[in-house]
Design a protein around this nucleic acid. Structure first.
Length: 787
RNA sequence: UGCCCAGUAGCUCAAUCGGCAGAGCGUCCGGCUCUGGACCGGGAGGCUGGUGGUUCGAAUCCACCCUGGGCAACCA
């Protein structure tokens, strides 16, 4: 079991953690934090799911010291057509592999079928659900489109008795598939398609892998999911962005199924963006296609982003966890570069993998001054000097050995620091070697290199102090052991194989798997079972768990070493960076133009009646165009504005406040739902305009009014928000702030003038936001420029 | 031509109540080195999608616009 690190819990904050912090502070759920990972057992898990698993189970660990936490593994198995136990097992296995433990919180949505049914009866009795007998196409037709409202089904107004009877008979199996459905009665004309009477249940005479033929009606996701969360006492229900729309039904279901007293602590859904990785695909359907059509070797093919594939490839689960923490949790869609994942792998593997030598693409080398048949045992450290581990192994050196074919160039470029004719290199853990001859076959292919070692350099240093630039790995020809090395590259050769019109299989990278007949030093056979090792200068490898055997070792490359010399087409050269920068600049410029061209006068968006009101606001009251249009465009808001003028007749300041401040705090509420009326706002604006309070003080007052109403003047008195415009008082405050922040003062005087904002912030904070800002700023600037 | 979501460094993300625009990756330069790895030091890279507004002060609030994505399954 892994122990979460402090880094993970304190540094890796995200908006979900902010929400949990707040709920904990307010006691929304007491001291409970319950999350869940709810896969449907219809496929294998992939790296995208890992993000969700790490988020959900990570919360359980990160909050364990502050709250009563749990994370459920729940199979969302409400569709009998696609689900089966094989997937259940593989999912459990992958969650465990990632290092997480659901303890005794293993659940199946199918266990709740009876409860779902009871809740459905409740909805019907409340008049919130009805049985619709329209055929499928008609339902679709009646739903309307994104631009046209839907029309109610003729069955929408069936009596509660009829609905109850029909629904019971649906369950009893009296009807064929598709004859009836149960629908929520919400709003067929809602601009949110999802609220146009969503389906709750459909008839499906199918065997369920856990329930058998017990049921012939099955609940839909939108209905089942919120109830599953509520039944299990989930507090924060985290899912991906595409469920954003569904949240409206989620809330509706809970608000109509749960009792009044359960609502304050009901589960809430929050969405985050799913993980997209470059050069691969993440859709279950497409992954299945690759497996079924034989493009890859099963769900656990090491090239696949499935967790089973990563496991087989040798990726350490700890690396997947830290990768997921690194990419973070946000609501903005993004595509993470593969190199970010590779970096996480290397970071994990570097301190934990022994170094060994293996030549993947062997080129024969003969050291002519070494006697034939002698085997000299050299000693080699398993760990580089910067890793504090001290272990060695013996490495046999012989007259004939292999080096990497790519480590020799007959005609080397300037910056090539490896072997070339006449050039000396260091053999890792061994002698300096100079190449003297190149032997080619009839085709002109290099088949052998000949040269001499310097016997004085056995310990890696020369008596005369010379030191070759390059160091090569090598393996004795007679003592080395043949192994098969499978070198993997990205599965696709484009960053986004999902995009575009061409079938995604067109972008398959033909070189995603290269099998090498390699040779490794003998010590490789002495490693613990399934040990991950680094083949020096190449990458990290481990034995394939399925196909490797002591007699015929097969090694998978987990990830290559970072290589700053080899040409890599995905490498970001300075030119490429410059190109991208310019490209971005161009796009911004183009966008600017388009946004200017597309700009419309907000007045054009008004109806005729609203225009009349706009004209009055703009021409008679003298409001500026935008404010007038914004107010006129919202009848409730405009009424509110008109009423507020009765209290305080100052149109433009009132409009400013209502549009710029009140509107921002309203969010989804309407002005009618506020705990205070227009008179209070009129009063508030009067306080500002008469210089009784500052804008910032007014903001504090408004916030308090948003929570519980109240009289502005009373709040001002109670919270002591009266504006401070007394020079002496302010000077004292400023003096104090300056004394407390000598560093910032120095930096300000050094030229970092925008620190004035910082100082203003301090002054405002010290005065509870009631310092007269213009005066404070003036005094501050004066005081700060005094040397 | 509806509703919802999102635009901050090349990439992924931060930025407390509106108050100093930062970090990791990548990149470049230097150091160290028996891995062209790792490590250490330093640099470059930003009109916070745009325009206007509110404010002493806007990445953050308001309006309009631009770009990208999601939603019209008896899938989840």
């Amino acid at each position: 079991m892994f122990v979460p690190t402090n880094v993970a819990s304190t540094d890796r904050n995200n908006f979900v953690y902010d929400i949990i912090d707040e709920d904990l502070a307010e006691g929304t759920y007491g001291d409970r934090v319950a999350t869940r990972f709810p896969p449907e057992p219809n496929g294998y898990l992939h790296i995208g799911h890992a993000k969700s698993i790490v988020l959900n189970f990570g919360i359980k660990h990160d909050y364990a010291d502050r709250a009563d936490t749990q994370c459920h593994l729940r199979f969302d198995d409400t569709n009998p057509d696609t689900e089966n136990p094989e997937y259940v097992d593989s999912i459990k296995e992958s969650v465990r592999w990632l290092g997480y433990d659901w303890e005794d919180h293993l659940y199946f949505a199918s266990d709740y079928f009876e409860q779902f049914y009871e809740y459905a009866l409740k909805l019907i009795r409340q008049g919130d659900a009805y049985v619709d007998s329209l055929p499928e196409e008609k339902i679709r037709e009646y739903r309307g489109t994104v631009t046209e409202p839907g029309t109610p089904s003729p069955y929408r107004d069936r009596s509660v008795e009829d609905n109850l009877d029909l629904f019971r008979r649906m369950r009893a199996g009296e009807f064929a598939d598709g004859e009836h459905v149960l629908r929520a009665k919400i709003d067929m004309s809602s601009p949110h398609m999802i609220l146009r009477d969503p389906l709750l249940y459909r008839i499906k005479h199918a065997d369920h892998y856990r329930q058998g033929d017990e049921w012939c009606i099955y609940p839909m996701y939108d209905y089942a999911h919120p109830l599953e969360d509520a039944i299990e006492g989930i507090t924060h229900s985290l899912c991906t962005l595409e469920f954003d729309n569904n949240r409206r039904v989620y809330d509706w279901v809970l608000e109509h199924c749960l009792d009044e007293d359960e609502l304050p602590s009901r589960p809430r859904q929050y969405e985050f963006s799913r993980l997209n990785l470059g050069y691969t695909i993440m859709s279950k359907r497409k992954l299945r296609h690759l497996v079924d059509e034989g493009y890859v070797d099963g769900w656990d093919d090491p090239r696949l982003p499935t967790l089973a594939g990563l496991e087989r490839r040798g990726v350490p689960p700890s690396a997947v966890r830290s990768f997921c923490r690194e990419v973070g949790v946000t609501r903005s869609e993004s595509r993470v570069e593969m190199r970010q994942f590779e970096h996480a792998l290397r970071e994990d593997l570097n301190p934990t993998s022994r170094r060994l030598m293996a030549v993947l693409d062997p080129l024969k080398v003969v050291a002519t001054n070494v006697e034939e048949g002698t085997v000299e045992q050299l000693e080699g450290d398993y760990w580089p000097r910067d890793i504090e581990k001290d272990e060695t192994r013996e490495i046999p050196f012989t007259r004939t050995f292999y080096i990497e074919r790519s480590d020799f160039r007959e005609d080397p470029p300037d910056d090539f620091i490896r072997l070339a004719p006449g050039r000396e290199v260091r053999l890792r853990h061994g002698y300096f070697f100079t190449c003297e001859d190149v032997v080619e076959n009839d085709d002109g292919e290099i088949v052998e290199l000949r040269g001499r070692i310097d016997p004085e350099t056995r310990d890696g240093t020369a008596p005369d102090g010379r030191s070759p630039e390059g160091t090569l790995h090598w393996v004795s020809a007679s003592e080395g052991r043949p192994i098969q090395a499978r070198v993997y590259d990205r599965l696709f050769d484009v960053p986004a194989p999902d995009d575009g019109d061409a079938p995604f299989t067109d972008h398959l990278n033909p070189d995603s798997l290269v099998v090498k007949h390699a040779v490794a030093e003998p010590a490789l056979a002495d490693q613990p079972e399934q040990a991950r090792v680094q083949f020096e200068r190449q990458g990290y490898f481990w034995p394939d768990p399925e196909e490797s055997s002591p007699e015929a070792p097969v090694y998978n490359q987990i990830v290559s070493l970072r290589d700053t010399w080899d040409e890599d087409e995905t490498r970001l050269t300075p030119e490429e960076l410059e190109r991208r920068r310019k490209e971005k600049q161009r796009q911004k410029e183009a966008q600017r133009k388009r946004s200017q061209e597309g700009k419309t006068d907000p007045v054009e968006l008004l109806s005729d009646a609203q225009r009349e009101r706009f004209a009055r606001y703009h021409e008679e009251l003298g409001l500026d165009r935008e404010d007038a249009a914004t107010l006129a465009g919202d009848n409730d808001l405009a009424d509110f504005f008109d009423a507020a003028q009765q209290t305080y007749d100052a149109p433009q300041p009132l409009a400013n406040w209502i549009v710029n401040e009140l509107l921002g705090k309203l969010e989804e509420r309407s002005v009618g739902a506020l705990p205070f009326g227009p008179a209070a706002v009129g009063e508030l604006v009067r306080l500002i305009e008469t210089d009784a309070i500052t804008n910032r003080g007014a903001d504090t007052v408004l916030n308090e009014m948003m929570d519980g109403g109240g009289d502005p003047q009373a709040i001002v008195d109670q919270r002591n928000l009266r504006q401070v415009d007394d020079t002496e008082t302010l000077a004292d405050v400023i003096e104090e702030v300056i004394q407390e922040h000598p560093d910032e003062v120095a930096r300000y005087r050094d030229g970092k003038k925008n620190l004035i904002g910082f100082f203003m912030g301090q002054v405002m904070q010290a005065t509870n936001g009631s310092a007269k800002p213009e005066l404070a700023r003036e005094l501050l600037q004066k005081r700060l420029s005094d040397a």
